[in-house]
């Protein structure tokens, strides 16, 4: 294990592996095109919990417990837990830590928190700190709606650029790489970028410049080309955000082509499930990676993946005060052991 600083905020890591992942999602996510890849699909949005906030916690707890189990270890082996969620004071992450009783570093980067945790956890392991780190992120549609928008039953029309906060949790266990473990190769932490967007119903366009910034700096620091990746997945830019990122990319000389995709765009059948721009929320990138993307890599369909979770760092207060929306994106390269030798 070792770590080398290769750019302003980019690091190359040796021998940090993903020991196991788990994704637990709500019924709507289970009915989407990736439904078969999730470890568990809830039959209802609350799964018998008495509040949406409790449901969000249960979702994260289940994902973390499953990930620990699938990594063939026990909670006692986990030295540190990293993660976050969208609710005020990241209560879901903090309250779940009450159950597992492991040391916790709660993080907030809105919907970008999964790659923040993944990158940071991997960096700590490579720096020979903790031996085993659990990372996780969660969001719940109704808990987020309640906090950021309106009550569930209040009628209103969604605009075409509005995203649907996913009910999903994803978790991964990181440790020293062995055998066939997927590797966390390189990490680039994002800067806060604000291009003056104000509309909370259009976060894809607000976040696209932040995604481009992190991808550009990641490619520059690592020397990777776009062709070196089988997939570049942003977090929750959605249909419109990806469209803009393609455009921004070609203006900057990056031709992503169809390697560029988005977790939020992939989680639902956009038309049939009536989600407009696609999915959003910390659980979106966490769930899609821990379920679908991890398995694509594990099965050998893909060799290398760049995961760039994106976050809009606003609150209902800043929005009502007319402030613009600052955004961030953290980029993590995950590769199969074979690809690493290349």
């Amino acid at each position: 294990m070792s770590v080398a600083k290769i750019g302003a905020a980019s690091y190359r890591l040796k021998n940090v592996g993903i020991k196991g992942t788990a994704a637990v999602v709500g019924p709507k996510e289970g009915q989407g095109p990736l439904g078969a890849y999730f470890d568990k699909v809830w039959v209802s949005e609350t799964n018998h919990e008495t509040s949406f906030e409790r449901a969000e916690r249960a979702l994260l707890e289940e994902a973390l417990n499953l990930a620990v189990k699938k990594a063939n270890c026990s909670w006692d082996d986990v030295d540190l837990v990293l993660g976050g969620d969208l609710l005020d004071q990241i209560v879901s992450t903090n309250f779940v830590a009450r159950q597992h009783e492991r040391p916790l570093l709660g993080l907030f980067a809105a919907c970008a928190v999964f790659t923040e945790a993944l990158g940071l956890g991997a960096l700590l392991i490579a720096g020979q700190g903790p031996k085993r780190v659990a990372v996780g992120a969660v969001s719940h549609h109704m808990a987020a709606e309640r906090q950021f928008r309106f009550p569930i039953e209040l009628g209103y029309q969604r605009t075409p650029t509005a995203a649907w906060t996913a009910t999903a949790a994803g978790a991964a266990i990181l440790g020293v790489a062995q055998h066939e473990d997927l590797l966390v190769d390189t990490v680039t932490f994002g800067r806060v970028i604000d291009y003056g967007s104000k509309d909370p119903n259009d976060m894809g366009s607000a976040m696209a410049p932040a995604a481009l910034d992190s991808i550009e700096r990641h490619l520059a620091a690592t020397g990777d080309r776009i062709e070196d990746y089988d997939g570049i997945f942003t977090g929750d830019l959605g249909v419109f955000g990806i469209d803009l990122l393609q455009e921004l990319g070609s203006a900057a000389g990056l031709r992503f082509g169809d390697r560029l995709n988005d977790c939020g765009k992939s989680l639902y059948y956009l038309k049939e499930q009536d989600v407009h721009n696609g999915a959003s929320g910390p659980g979106c990138s966490a769930g899609v990676f821990s379920g679908y993307l991890y398995q694509r890599l594990k099965k050998g369909d893909w060799q290398r993946l760049l995961l760039v979770a994106t976050g809009a760092l606003f609150s209902p207060t800043t929005y009502q005060q007319g402030e613009t929306i600052p955004c961030i994106a953290h980029a993590v390269t995950v590769s199969s052991p074979g690809a690493h030798a290349r």
Partner: peptide, 22 residues
């Protein structure tokens, strides 16, 4: 300037609301 140019791009590409249908 960059911010203004980007907001112009966003505006020109934004999927329009289905006003007639609404």
């Amino acid at each position: 300037q960059r911010v203004r140019a980007y907001q112009e791009l966003v505006k020109s590409r934004r999927p329009s609301k289905p006003i007639l249908k609404n």
